[in-house]
Design a protein around this nucleic acid. Structure first.
Lengths: 256, 256
DNA sequence: CGATTTCTGTGGCCTAGTTCAGATGCCCCG
DNA sequence: CGGGGCATCTGAACTAGGCCACAGAAATCG
């Protein structure tokens, strides 16, 4: 059971009331914060909300506010109607290393896995067409995947590929192979320039469902366009990450 | 008065009930979403919460959830105990352009201003020392500033500068001059490499107070280290942005 | 033994209030 | 005309419940 790990030990509680070293508002939920700092391991499930309101002698709304707060801080996360969990450490994601997902994850002693949700052909809408420099309505490949780290679904990504660049690419096992590896080895296309657009928002309905996240959970959007050695945009992707799952890094010479 | 702009016009309401084109949960607050899409201008203040619960026939908690949701989406923001406002368009922030803040803002037809909160000398803690490659406890310059776009406080930034690189820099008017300009013209130091670390979190107490944001509002953290032409780390800064204020962009060659 | 159904526990979402503290502006007084 | 106090308006935080939809496991049926 989890009962011992979250017990608001009397000494901790009394020190919290006497200590004013934590200047945050005395909102009851900061108990949680303290208690969390101690003995909870990554991905461990918190007790149910109803159990916690009893244990901390508070109400549903107050507790919920507190949990949402901790979620925004990236300390806990939730799975839709399943419960609250302690966030694992963030994956360091080097934007310019351009490592395949699996390599990046495994280099940090984590376990990666990928699941293909859909792969097919669609007509490019205005946004995709503009990004790829093709005519609106042109047919492109569209690949939607979900990626996991240590079993946790953290990334929903939707690729759009120029069909003239990668004919027949859907016949490969897209769950097993890295796209960039396929580009290089099967199509002799190397990514020689990337362009990113980053913003923090919330999950849309599709991504939320795919990641088992609640609609309205905070998300990090990463839109990326890949250019080949001839400066031609060959594909783009829209990534939506659980915002607590990554820390982006980047090192480069500024364009003076 | 604002009364007319947010009126839930009966035709709009009826069309909302018949239209199922918006698949989001029928949570009442999506009314707000619709209404917002229409006639509200950037930075315009929403009616008070008490006024809205009456107008939409809902309760405080429900309305608040909805507002927090819209805040997470980046569509509205709040100032501490002052009210809710419509978010202006995001500033496009090119990480590698390394434009001074003022230039970047003005190039997008917005108005920038800067306020120096504090400037002095402090002993480098472990984190700062590691970033700058100096001994822990070495004295460094520390500059804290708040930046505004169109009058709205959007950025709290804390710089740490190596004192041996920039002797006497505190004597300049740090509210008027760009730091990178001072580096170049007064100290002959050019930034030839930058290293970033990005994560989405919430404001800490200090930044929240400085920006007039509620504690717990979502924030985008940008930590940056600048290296000079000799590869030496000369300064670093910790930026906390209102998360709805920026959209980060970036274009570069990947490190193969 | 496998597939289906049912049941229970969970978060999601909602109602209807109250108390508190900061922000603002008004007004009065010097 | 300027400054200090005070009333008012605001969001912040909280109490005490309720119903609903979905997830997961257990029980049941073919």
């Amino acid at each position: 059971m989890l009962s011992s790990s979250l017990e608001p030990q009397s000494d901790a509680a009394s020190s919290a009331t006497s200590d004013t070293d934590v200047p945050v508002a005395g909102l009851k939920g900061k108990l949680l914060n303290h208690l969390e700092a101690a003995p909870l391991r990554a991905s461990q499930r918190l007790p149910s909300e109803r159990e916690m309101i009893e244990r901390f002698a508070t109400t549903r709304v107050t507790l919920r506010d507190t949990l949402l707060q901790l979620e925004a801080e990236g300390r806990i996360y939730r799975e839709n109607r399943r419960g609250w969990f302690v966030s694992p450490p963030r994956l360091r994601y080097d934007l310019l290393a351009c490592l395949p997902f699996r390599d990046m994850v495994e280099s940090q002693q984590r376990v990666a896995s990928t699941e293909v949700l859909a792969a097919g052909e669609v007509a490019a809408n205005a946004v995709i067409a503009r990004r790829l420099g093709i005519a609106e309505g042109s047919v492109v490949y569209r690949i939607t995947r979900v990626r996991r780290i240590d079993g946790r679904r953290v990334l929903h990504v939707c690729h759009h590929l120029r069909r003239d660049c990668f004919p027949g690419i859907l016949d490969f096992d897209l769950g097993a192979h890295s796209l960039t590896d396929l580009y290089r080895h099967e199509y002799a296309i190397r990514v020689s320039r990337v362009s990113f657009e980053l913003a923090s928002t919330v999950f849309d309905a599709e991504a939320a469902a795919a990641l088992n996240a609640a609609q309205g959970s905070p998300a990090q959007r990463i839109t990326r366009i890949n250019f080949d050695q001839n400066g031609r945009a060959v594909d783009c992707d829209d990534e939506h990450w659980r915002h607590d799952a990554i820390e982006l890094t980047l090192s480069a010479a500024p364009q003076s």
